[in-house]
Amino acid sequence: MRLGLVIDLDTCVGCHACAVACKQWNSSGTTGPLTDYDPYGAEPSGVWFNRIRNFEVGDYPNNKTVNFPMSCMHCETAECVTVCPTGASYKREEDGIVLVDQDKCMGCNYCAWACPYGARELDESSGTMKKCTLCVDRIYDEELPKEERKPACVLTCPTHARFFGDLDDPDTEVSRLVRERGGFQSMPELGYNPTNHYLPPRPTRPVEQERRPQISLQEKIKEWMGRVVEK
């Protein structure tokens, strides 16, 4: 099994709902709290597992804005895990989720150096590395109603741009979407083989124009007068 997210850049409006939902759920959860520094001061900052950035593609007026959410990609070749000296970072064999055992981490940042996607953030106050858990404490929690056993970010997304599932199984919605919509990975050349995929914007549907001749006003009014329309 290879659990991960598929994110639809065709509908993501960059609203940050997923990022805040993530923050909210994981403030308790398995690696919480996610410390916030200087929350009411000059440089408010904190630990987040999911951040949304906005890019502009092309030059005005042929520009397109792209909203780009990023969280842990739960890579197949998770170098963050390879380099971790303590074994705190690990990739679960059964579902491919990459986690950090908070009791083992020594806060050396080495895994963050190894992560191309900025998915790992050190919690200065706990001294441990934190990251997206793929909401492992939601997706397997049998006490939650079935339809809620999904990551918080997926449940909350107002444009349903986030999909969760097993990318190993060709019959899942996520695999189908990646197949049919040409899903791609970020920086494939690095060879991390991220599990998370992005769906590119859909091509625009061409709409025909209604062609009708244009005639002069006088003629028209004359022609139109006395046309019978049942009221």
Binding site: S27, T31, T35, P39, Y40, Y90, D103
Partner: peptide
């Protein structure tokens, strides 16, 4: 005074442990 740091949570995080055996053998 507004706090200088926030660590909001309603319960201690339920850490997901990795067995030491796994650490050594993987």
């Amino acid at each position: 005074e507004s706090p200088a740091e926030l660590r909001y949570h309603t319960h201690e995080a339920v850490n997901l442990r990795r067995s030491f055996k796994d650490v050594l053998t993987r």
